[in-house]
């Protein structure tokens, strides 16, 4: 697993930075056991992305985005993942273009089965909307990005389970409501 390190801007630590300083080992450990391949946490000043490396571990640079995006839903996505099954091979749907992510109006709930070709959202770039589609029949495990978030090429947008029994093993009702969970709950 590789991870990025948040940088303070020299004007004092944000609450997220303080949280990370105190909780990073626990967050990192929990992330490593989760089915997520990538996890982004941000507040108004700092963004941190945890990425599971597929080859040799490497330290990724931390990047602060030029435009701030809503931050209230980061823990929510983290919380949605409690329905996932540690160690199970999930499939990610990644951004093919650089732009702003928007959820589809009828984006499924975690645990909900989806037909192939279902539009889960859009990446808007240069006034064009590129649909984000689910390629095969699958069950939605999690939406990783937030509404209105800037995404780069290859960034994980959704995690789905394409195994034949995927839908049957995940009960949507078991996935907790978004709400405002405790931040480190992964």
């Amino acid at each position: 697993m590789s991870q990025s390190r948040p940088e303070a801007d020299g004007r004092g630590q944000s609450s997220l930075l303080r949280f990370l300083n105190e909780q990073l080992p626990q967050v990192s450990q929990a992330f490593s056991k989760s089915p997520l391949k990538q996890l982004r946490i941000r507040d108004a000043e700092v963004a941190m992305t945890l990425v599971k490396a597929t080859t040799a571990p490497a330290v990724l640079p931390t990047r602060q985005r030029g435009r701030q995006v809503p931050t209230d839903s980061s823990p929510r996505h983290v919380a949605r993942m409690v329905g996932g099954e540690a160690g199970r091979p999930y499939t990610t749907i990644n951004a093919e273009v650089v732009g702003i992510f928007h959820s589809a109006a009828d984006v499924p709930q975690p645990g909900e089965p989806m037909d192939a070709g279902r539009v889960l959202g859009y990446v808007e770039a240069l006034r064009l909307r590129t649909p984000v589609r689910n390629a095969d029949q699958a069950v939605l495990i999690a939406q990783v990005v937030e509404e209105g978030q800037a995404v780069e090429f290859g960034e994980t947008l959704f995690i789905v389970d394409r195994r034949p029994d995927g839908g049957a093993t995940l009960d949507a009702a078991a996935v907790p409501d978004a709400g405002e969970p405790e931040a480190p709950q992964i």
């Binding site: 985005r65 030029g66 435009r67 273009v97 650089v98 770039a125 240069l126 780069e152």
Partner: peptide
């Protein structure tokens, strides 16, 4: 598809407000 990908480069420029 990357360093010659004009659409993605311009989009990154717009997103970052350069």
């Amino acid at each position: 598809r990357s360093y010659l990908n004009v659409a993605n480069i311009i989009s990154a420029a717009e997103l970052t407000g350069v």
